[in-house]
Amino acid sequence: MSDWPKVRLHVVTGKGGTGKSTVAASLALALAGRGKNVLLCEVEGRQGIARMFDVDPLPYEERRLTTGLPDGSGGRGVVHALHIDAESALLEYLSMYYRLGRAGRALDRFGVIEFATTIAPGVRDVLLSGKVYEAVQRNSRNKKAQQYDAVVLDAPPTGRITQFLNVGEEVAGLAKVGPIKSQSDTMMTLFRSPRTAVHLVTVLEEMPVQETADGIAELRKARLPVGGVIVNQVRPRDLTAEDLAAAGAGTLDRSLVESDLEHAGIDGGAGLVESLLAEAADHAERRALEDSQRDLVARLDVPTYELPRIAGGIDLGAMYELAGLLREQGMS
């Protein structure tokens, strides 16, 4: 059973380098089981979805990517993708709500849209998050649009996520009344509801874990719903506790290492043995640091999930593997 059965909007954030985009894509694949349709969105202009799925750069248009993770019952949903940029979102907004089709495109040609989003940076976040809201909460203004059972957002990093979602505060300085203020209030109703969950991706290092803790505190202060913490790129646990302690203390049996190398047909001499013992000591030190950071993550009092480091790099097969692990742990 999923830990998040009522959630329609899964927002995935994390410090740069933690693999949040990979986790977002894997979560979309996991959710797209049992016949569910899922939309995977990105808003940072990096075309990360296209690179991960090895497709052409995405336009401002919902595109079918692939089928979801098989669930064993024969049902497989579809993952669609959407690359959102502020200029296209504003043109669509003007067309849908003010019927400024050609006029809106004329504004774009004159650079008015870029000028507006530059002079008031908060407008850009409102436009981007507004399109995400529209994908979740489809209405009669966007007729014939695909309906989705879930939307996964590859969101801005942890340091900006509260500002990005807290559109009510952004709009407060721009408009006190009117349709923009009214729409931002409606968006906040979704973003603060049980239908939204903000998941945070981290790795077991001091700075990402601390940023995750700070992000959770900021989200809660803004009354935005905190989801789970996904600990990504976890190293394998190949050594027993006894061998790990011996590696850290520098007391591993040198003769046993030499014997194992000889048995494997490897003749690297004393230099190879010294290198292996040094690497084992480094690994033990790293594992001790990771264990201390895992304890800190456990104290955050939110559901946690772990994903392993993929040695061969991330491709579609690896993302299906990660999707299966997320499902096994109850995230989808």
Rank of each mutant, 00 (worst) to 15 (best):
R46S: 14
I113K: 03
Y148I: 00
T202M: 01
A217V: 08
L127P: 03
K131H: 14
N142T: 13
G312Y: 09
G45E: 09
G271S: 10
L272E: 03
M207I: 12
A249E: 15
L326W: 12
I119Q: 13
T13Q: 09
A246I: 03
D238G: 15
M96Q: 11
K176H: 13
A81V: 08
L69C: 02
G312F: 05
S73P: 02
T66P: 04
V38S: 07
D301Y: 01
G265W: 11
Y148M: 01
V198A: 03
K131A: 11
E285W: 05
K144I: 03
E306C: 05
V112D: 13
V23H: 02
D214E: 08
L69D: 00
G35H: 09
T118A: 13
G317F: 05
G16Y: 10
A106C: 07
E44I: 04
G215W: 03
G17R: 01
V152K: 00
T13K: 01
E211W: 01
E61Q: 13
S259R: 15
P57Y: 09
R34S: 15
S21R: 01
V12E: 01
A222G: 07
Y93L: 10
S332K: 00
V171I: 11
G45H: 11
Q146S: 06
K181F: 14
A288C: 02
D260F: 13
Q233N: 14
L29R: 02
E211S: 07
D185R: 08
L272D: 04
L322C: 07
Q233F: 10
V151N: 01
G227D: 05
L300M: 15
A106N: 07
P208Q: 07
G317K: 08
D238C: 08
V229F: 02
A24F: 00
E285M: 09
R124V: 07
V231G: 01
T67W: 10
L165C: 10
W4K: 02
L127D: 06
L224E: 02
A89E: 02
E170P: 04
